[in-house]
Nucleic acid binder design. Structure first.
Lengths: 108, 108
DNA sequence: ATCGTAGTACGATGAATTCCGTACGTTAAA
DNA sequence: TTTAACGTACGGAATTCATCGTACTACGAT
């Protein structure tokens, strides 16, 4: 089983996090995770992009330290690293999610 | 005197704001403005880039709606649009500034 | 053992970004 | 009026990014 690299909490960088959250598709993923959908495969997010592009976006989020991923069978389950993010950048994730909810495009 | 375009408060986009704040030079500008240095010309920020690159970064911040700019003589004074940002994306600017202060590179 | 599903690797492409230097415009000061 | 200061416009080079298709691997189910 392949190993999925995750940055340690102290290694999470503001540049990477903000850049990761600057993309609407990635914010959509984050919002769905925040809604509690951390038990579904990447493919089940219904993103309007190809499978390989989807892989790319999940990887950017993981390498930035925004999400954690682990295998379950052939699927990968993702979850928000809300605690790590809030410890390092207090309030940041919450304000971005709130902003996306109020001004972003509705999902579907 | 040339006109400096600024987006209306309702037209400020989360994509543009996050992308603008994802750059360390631009966060440095924002932090200096938050420190009250809104009475100095762009050139006085002591940025480690050329004059034309500096112009570029200030323009990105202005067009994203993060800062306001107006001429005074040949100089341009910039200020944070903290109220507009907080109205549209509550808490976002504050958390980014706090994050930059605690984890970013110190400004000289 | 075969097949299907979830995701990855790789390479390509086009668009956007970062940065620079040079030349120019506008305004204030000498 | 001449000069200096501040910023812009433009063009170019290097880099990064989002996206895709195709081919592949890993795992589970049949």
């Amino acid at each position: 089983m392949r190993v999925l690299e995750h940055p340690e909490q102290e290694a999470i960088g503001l540049d990477a996090v903000l850049a990761a959250l600057a993309d609407p598709i990635r914010r959509r993923i984050v919002c769905q995770l925040a809604d509690g959908h951390d038990d579904q495969a990447c493919i089940a997010f219904g993103l309007p992009v190809s499978k390989s592009t989807s892989t790319h976006h999940f990887r950017v989020l993981r390498e930035a330290g925004v999400i954690a991923q682990h295998y379950r069978g052939t699927a990968i389950l993702s979850s928000l690293r809300a605690d790590d993010l809030d410890a390092r950048f207090p309030g940041l994730l919450a304000s971005v999610i709130a902003a996306e909810r109020t001004t972003g495009s509705p999902v579907r």
